[in-house]
Design a protein around this nucleic acid. Structure first.
Lengths: 244, 244
DNA sequence: CGCCAATGATGAATGCTATTTATTAGCGAC
DNA sequence: GTCGCTAATAAATAGCATTCATCATTGGCG
């Protein structure tokens, strides 16, 4: 009496796309809950309603599965952001928008962001991967903003656009690590304002006397940007950038 | 004829400190060469001249061994920097010094820096660890510089010192990730200048001509009122101004 | 209608490693 | 010398990704 071999084993055939999306959905769940190392293929298989071996029919290994999951998430994110961004005018507003949306996505999906920062980006094959290209496109929006700002005479001509990219995204990551570890919380809108202002103005006290009008403008700019972002609508009026 | 059990097995007794430092030296080598995951306890034991089990007499597990190795490296680094820093005067010079020494240590020990960023800092028990405290002391020098600069009237009074810390260290990390993955190189001195200047001055062009401020204000007031109404929220408080 | 090849799916086997454990060897006290 | 204590050892254990030999479905073709 063979214990189970004699029993007809259950087999459930499905179209490959369905299997793949089931597996990816289950994998996303498990990776998010457990992190890469503690995620078990067994667990993923169980939740996807397949057996361990089946996962290897569609994905070469655990890491490839992770990469596909994160790619999927990232692509979705990019699609959502792209058209909104196109409507924002003025270098301050554009930087603020980029900072804010990035902070928001970290705030919404901390576990996935973490996987990206900790597992994907440090890998030696990251450069050359699809995710690298996606991320490049994502961050290059900021580089372009700076270039345009320089050309338009808004921003200092000697600034390196790519260094500004590292300044902004690096600052965001460094600031959010505690949150990503599960410690505390942050307010994306408030932090976006602070970072944008700091990057824009720097630390040094300029020699310009601050007119009382300026602080009014500053307050209004901030309130407007926040409200526009919150309302999800395009900025008010002129193509003449943020004046000042 | 028992294959080996009958042969007198070699045992080499040493004082614990010596054993520990041998193991840590071997572990440092292997972690640096292979990274955390691909480092094998077997390999470490072999190079330290002990057997695998002996490592567990001194270290609870592989991760604790990693932490001890990185701690040791970090402590050494701090000792070297501390007295030099005390001699530097002026906020620009002090920031530049901190940026430069940090870049230099990444440039000198990329593998260890990577372990710190990728394996240690993201761990849930990082906060509360000794390394957290060491790193805190390390980065707080910059926070203090900013505070002093503000008090002395060198730096903008409204800047958040801790945000400047995240800006600077985040920028450095983001900028050096490619190098940490083994792609390309960078010049610490040159990059230190660029980062310090960017942080110090910001992006914005300093000398604004007193422009048609009134029309700007008018536009912003209108947009704000409209948006606040649309969003159904209370008007932005004057006190919360984005200064300048 | 029924059989057959192709391939999806399975569950057990493999292999690699961290970690544990039972055993042995050296060293100091008596 | 020898007895006990502990460092050190080598073998055993266990967890988990990955592979493999087999089996079950399905759609095409007689």
């Amino acid at each position: 009496m063979p214990p189970r071999s004699a029993l007809k084993r259950q087999v459930n055939r499905l179209p490959p796309e369905r299997r793949i999306s089931d597996i990816m959905a289950a994998a996303k769940e498990v990776f998010v809950e457990k992190g890469y190392n503690d995620a078990l293929i067994t667990d993923i298989a169980l939740r996807a309603g397949v057996v361990e071996g089946s996962i290897y029919r569609f994905f070469a290994n655990k890491r490839e599965l992770l990469v596909k999951v994160v790619e999927h998430w990232f692509e979705e994110m990019l699609r959502d952001d792209a058209e909104q961004f196109a409507a924002v005018r003025g270098s301050w507003n554009q930087i603020r928008f980029i900072v804010y949306t990035h902070l928001t996505s970290i705030h919404r999906d901390p576990a996935l962001s973490r996987l990206m920062f900790q597992e994907i980006r440090p890998a030696p094959d990251y450069r050359g991967s699809h995710l690298f290209e996606l991320n490049r496109a994502y961050t290059n929006r900021l580089v372009d903003v700076v270039k345009v700002g320089i050309a338009a005479g808004d921003l200092r001509p000697e600034t390196s656009p790519s260094l500004v990219r590292d300044l902004v995204f690096g600052c965001i990551e460094h600031r959010t690590w505690a949150f990503l570890r599960g410690e505390g919380d942050f307010d994306p809108a408030e932090l976006a304002d602070a970072i944008t202002n700091l990057v824009h103005h720097g630390l040094a006290l300029g020699d310009e006397p601050a007119s009382p009008m300026e602080s009014v403008v500053a307050r209004l700019e901030t309130a407007t940007a926040r409200l526009e972002a919150a309302a999800g609508i395009a900025p008010t009026k002129p193509a003449s950038a943020r004046p000042r």
